[in-house]
Amino acid sequence: MSEPKPGRFWGSEAAAGLGLISPTAIYAILLLAAPLAFVIIASVLTDGYLQIIPKFQLCNYFGECASYKAGADGTLVETQKYLGAWSDPVLFSVMMRSLFVSILVTVATVALAYPMAYFISFNVAPARKGIWLFLITIPFWTSYVIRVFMWNAILGFSGVINSLLIGLNLIDKPLDMTFSIQAMVITLAHSFAPFAILPIYVALEKIDRSFLEAGQDLGENRFTTFLRVTLPLSMPGVVAAVLIVFIPTIGDYVTPKLVGGAKFPMIANVIEILMLKGDNKPLGSAIAVSAMVIVGLISVLFLFLNRRYLRGPK
């Protein structure tokens, strides 16, 4: 803030705001926006040996591509052929698997989170809501890698669940639950639970309780009031929860490694291989961009389908 000019106390608001945000904004532009833009550009360029050749092509997405290496006389020599992200059956299946896992995780997380958020908002005394929210956030902040790994100890052959079930004589042989899609879904749903609960809780808290009384006053029972009043009014929270779970999940790296037992690589694991060991940055970039586009399109579609719940006063 500079010394205000007499008479024009607040100066130019736009200038003051832009000036104030500029350190943070410049940092984000240089270290976030620019690298992301670079990835987008790299995804339509040509792969060279330990470098990117600035030659435009779309085959990193569709069709067949070739990698090159500079020859002795400086000309480019083709080293190997590969298929684009959407043409290669393996890469395509990884993307679809990631999408499938993300959707499963999102549905499971949000469906499990809603009753919890509802409970805290409607059934917990106001003075104790804070402590409940605190209880829910604690696991989220504690040692992510170890927390993910622990699910092996829970779901494993001699893990908690199998020990419990055998101890109760419900099963004879331990169930095989680790290194599976289900195990990944459970682990991810656990990781993102607080992210889903909080926005739904905030949306539920905003609902004027007299709307619910009005619903019952107009002849609905508690369940139909929930369906016709509470649920639609809490949809902005549900939408936020869906997006905040769905988008990061598709790029998760740790869970497929630790819980999927590397049998079910997801987008992040493939990007790692292509970008580092595989040295094909254009293809890796194309997959990263494809992931962002898939996520973006589905998010926009989801927002569009729920637009009627998101209108009105903010």
Binding site: A25, A28, P35, I244, D252, Y253
Partner: peptide, 22 residues
Amino acid sequence: LMGLIMLPMVLPDMIMAMALLV
């Protein structure tokens, strides 16, 4: 600008890390 600053909250960290790394 605020959207960009808040983006890492949802952006898969792998994509962010790789973009920055490259």
